[in-house]
Amino acid sequence: MKEPKKLVLLITYDNWGYNQYIADALQDKSYDVMHIDFHSFKYKYPGIAHKTLNFFTKNLGIINLKHVYYNEVILSKLNDIKSIDTAIYIKADFLSKQTIEAINAKSKKSVLIISDSINRYPKTKNILSLFDKVFSFEKKDCKKYNLSFKTNFIYKTADTIQTKFKYKVFNISSYDNRFPIIKKIAETLYTMNVKSKIIIFSKKENTEPYLEFSKSPLTISEINNFLDESEIMLDVSRSRQQGLSFRVFESLGLRKKLITTNKDIVNYDFYNPENILVIEDIENITIPEIFINTPYREVPKNILHKYLIENWVEDLVN
């Protein structure tokens, strides 16, 4: 008699769509995967009074009606589920301790993945003890809170190195405290006559010739098209961020050079100064033309192997 597939529950706030790659990789390994993406939940305030009240209560740290709704819907989706082999959470700081405990009571194993600094999302500290294993992208958090270190993953690969491109440098970012840095780098590339595609999600108006503002998010498919059309990727890390972003792993998988502000990247096994340019001083940006114009150097396959999504998911379920 054929054994039933093991059930993996993946609970994420998948605002960019990258976590679906985790679900797909697990399904490819013959797990039965239930992916609950609570970013897709649509909450409607009962009235303007509730919306106004929620504005004050969430900022005071009392209650967030949207988060209450997320918890209720998630639990309702699991009413008929009796047993879960592994429950994997990403962005669990949105969830209450009661919700996590109720789900974990049905789960043989619980795993939390923290993809950002705990300083940025301090509520995460309150739930660390609820999980059997906690992975973090941030080395300093792993040391401070005794967590297991894990990087981001490669979800898209290229079989060959491209030679023809529409753009030299590509970046896509939200409008946040990184914007002044992105703007400086974009301006530097512009003065070097380097053709770039640098997109910022913002409702603001843009007057600079070296930036594009988009009022609505792009799909992963649209982003992937720009990745394919670009020779070099630009990665600007958040303030005090040490963990590596998806831009880094997209560049690895697609065999593209990278310009980054993340200084810790030099400590990784795939680092090669011929492929990766680290901007050390944002006030004095230097981008050598030899870096821009020389070809990409292959990274050994045995190094790339562990970052591929199909291998990356292994220690989540084993």
Rank of each mutant, 00 (worst) to 15 (best):
Q241S: 04
N54R: 00
K184S: 08
L60V: 12
V134N: 04
D159T: 14
Y268E: 10
L147T: 02
Y31I: 02
A102W: 01
N59A: 03
I113P: 00
Q98C: 02
I81H: 02
N275A: 03
V236G: 00
I290V: 07
S83H: 10
Y175H: 00
K139S: 00
S83P: 08
S129M: 14
T52K: 14
N54S: 01
A23D: 08
M1W: 15
K91T: 13
T151F: 06
T160H: 03
K82P: 07
V73Q: 09
A87Q: 01
V266I: 09
I74M: 05
N284C: 11
D281G: 09
I154Y: 13
Q242Y: 11
W16A: 15
S245M: 06
K144H: 01
S216C: 14
V266K: 11
L234K: 11
A49C: 14
Q162V: 03
K66S: 06
K108T: 07
D14G: 05
P217K: 08
K6M: 10
F249G: 01
T294P: 15
I223L: 10
T157N: 02
K42I: 07
L128M: 05
D93Y: 01
Y175T: 03
E310D: 15
A92N: 12
N71E: 09
K306D: 12
Y21N: 06
V266S: 13
K106L: 05
A102D: 08
F38S: 10
K133M: 13
F179P: 05
L53Q: 09
Y31S: 10
Y45H: 09
T160V: 04
D32C: 13
L254M: 14
N293F: 07
K257T: 09
P273G: 05
Y18W: 08
S117A: 08
G243R: 04
S174Q: 04
K66R: 09
S115T: 11
S30C: 15
R297L: 14
L304K: 07
D24H: 01
N64D: 13
D24L: 15
F38Y: 12
I48R: 14
Q20K: 15
K140M: 03
S76F: 00
E3Y: 12
R120K: 04
Y268P: 04
H67I: 14
N171K: 10
I127M: 10
I118D: 04
S239H: 01
S214K: 13
D116G: 01
S115K: 11
I114M: 06
N267E: 05
R238K: 14
N119P: 06
S221T: 15
W312Q: 10
S230I: 07
V68R: 03
E72L: 14
L277W: 00
S136V: 08
N224L: 10
Y155N: 00
I265P: 12
S221V: 15
D269N: 02
V248W: 06
T160P: 12
F291N: 06
N126T: 00
N126I: 05
K166I: 05
S251M: 02
T163C: 08
H35P: 05
Y43R: 03
I181H: 04
K5M: 15
I118V: 00
K143H: 12
Q98G: 12
K183N: 02
I63W: 09
V134P: 07
Y268C: 05
I279H: 03
K140T: 00
L189G: 10
R297K: 15
Y43M: 00
F246Y: 13
T188E: 06
T207H: 13
F165D: 01
N64C: 01
K2W: 09
K29I: 11
G61P: 03
K97I: 05
S196N: 07
Y13K: 09
